[in-house]
Structures are given as C-alpha cells and as structure tokens.
Simulated assay, not measured.
Amino acid sequence: MSTADLTLALELAEAADEHTLARFAAVDLRVETKPDRTPVTDADIAVEDLIRARIAERRPGDGVAGEERGGTVGTGRCWLVDPIDGTKNFSRGVGVWATLIALLEDGEPVVGVASAPALGRRWWAAKGQGAFVRDHRGTRRITVSGVGALADAYLSTTEFTTWREHHSLAAYQRLSGACWQSRALGDFWSHCLVAEGAIDLAAEPIVNPWDLAALFVIVTEAGGRFTDLSGQPRYDNGSALSSNGLLHEAALGELDRQD
C-alpha cells in the first residue's frame, strides 16, 4: 500500500459520486430484484463497472471483487467494492447510501473509503495513517469516543428484524437494554459514526465482506475496534461489531450472555 493507492481510491470515489448523484431520485431509475431479494439499480451496475475500468487502467495487476460483478479475494492485491451500500435507500430517494472502496493486501484491508455524497460526507483511512472525514466543516482527522460504560453508550444497528432471522433478537435486546440509547441508523453510516466518535457501538447480525472492508480500516485507524459478533477481528465472517474499543468486551459479553 502506498499513498498513491489512497489517492486512487479517493479519485474512484469522486467519479462514483458524480454518477450516483446524477441517478439519485431519477424518474427513469431502473430497479430490479436479485435472487436474494435485494434490489439492484442501473446505478449500482454502472458505478461498479466504472470503478473496475479505472482500476484496470491504473492498476492492471490488481484484482477486483464487487457486489454486482462478483470476483474472489485471494493473495496479493485486490480491490473490494460496494458501488452503492444502501441500495434500498437509494432506490426510494433516501439519502443514506455510500460507495465503499477498499484495497486488500493478502486479504487484509489497508485502504478504505466510504463516500456518501447525498449526505455531503466522505470518510477515508489508510493503514498507519489515521482516519479522516470531509464534510461541510472541511477535512479533519477523526477519533472514536471515550465513553467507557455501556450505560452511557449510544448503539446503532441496521434493520431490527435481521437479528431475529440471522442471530438472536434476545441478544440484541440485552445489548440495547444495557446501553443508554439505541437507533437503527443502518449500513455504513453506523460504523462511520463510530469512527467519528458520534456513537459508541454499531452491530450487524448479517452483512457481506464488501459492506465492511473499507469500514474496518476507517474504524480501526480512528482508534476503534472492529470484529465479528464472536469477537474475531474479521470483516468477512458475516457479522460485525465496531466500537470505540473501551466497550467492546462488554458488548460481546451482552451478546453472548445466556439468561
């Protein structure tokens, strides 16, 4: 990983934003349903194709894997792309969605960008270089919160019903009950807000690697901790828990506790 890789990732995000904003809330937006019953729009396909073409031109030796066109992550360098994280929001005219771009080296995320143009925000990080956000206040370095007790913590998740279907609704209720406040801000935004220190915990019971690789870098470079729900430091085990680090073990304990 080099500074040039982060620069390229930011350039890819800029190009993606231009296209997604042009298609957001478009009257002729085409929406289809994939076999897993999740939506895909013409913008999802076009943005992934755009990113793949740019990478092929600028980094012809790198692999690419993405939500819409597939691909595998193995050894060496590979870019992992989610062209629109939050397609349901995007297709309904809700502005909480982002393009997620990560560079992996031998399977480890080393560069991450999450760009949410409808929110006017972009987050990025590179291994060993810290995490940053650009918004209406300009560009600044970000760090996680210093909240040290679950009773004072702000927790976010995605769609509430997924806990019943894919993990344990009781486990999430224990965790949320132990926290000060909980919301379902959803998807990338929850984890980015953990990195900013605006919230303290984000948990997802079912999620894909392309949804998490970029966020893994951003949260950890902001001083936080990112694992699956069993506590393994992975972005590709199908679930996610991000935190300010101080709360992580306590949160895992609530999720694992048997009443």
Rank of each mutant, 00 (worst) to 15 (best):
L169A: 13
L169K: 12
L169C: 01
A170M: 09
A170S: 14
Y172R: 10
Y172Q: 11
R174P: 09
S176A: 15
S176H: 09
G177K: 05
G177A: 11
G177S: 09
A178N: 06
W180E: 08
Q181F: 13
Q181S: 11
S182I: 05
R183K: 12
L185P: 00
L185R: 10
G186W: 05
G186I: 02
G186V: 03
G186P: 05
D187R: 12
F188M: 12
W189F: 14
W189H: 13
S190E: 01
S190H: 05
H191F: 08
H191Y: 14
L193A: 10
L193I: 01
L193E: 05
L193S: 02
V194I: 03
V194E: 00
A195N: 01
E196A: 01
A198G: 02
A198S: 14
D200H: 01
D200W: 00
A202I: 07
A202R: 03
A203W: 06
E204D: 01
E204M: 14
E204C: 07
I206Y: 15
V207C: 13
V207W: 04
V207D: 10
N208S: 14
N208R: 15
N208G: 01
P209Y: 07
W210D: 12
D211R: 11
D211M: 11
A213N: 07
A214V: 11
A214E: 09
L215R: 12
L215P: 12
L215W: 09
F216P: 01
F216L: 04
F216N: 11
V217M: 09
V217H: 11
V219A: 03
T220N: 05
T220I: 06
G223H: 02
G223F: 05
G224V: 06
G224D: 02
R225W: 06
F226P: 00
F226K: 00
T227N: 03
T227Q: 08
L229A: 11
S230Q: 12
S230P: 00
G231W: 05
Q232S: 13
D236Q: 07
D236G: 07
D236A: 10
N237I: 04
G238T: 10
G238C: 09
G238L: 07
L241D: 07
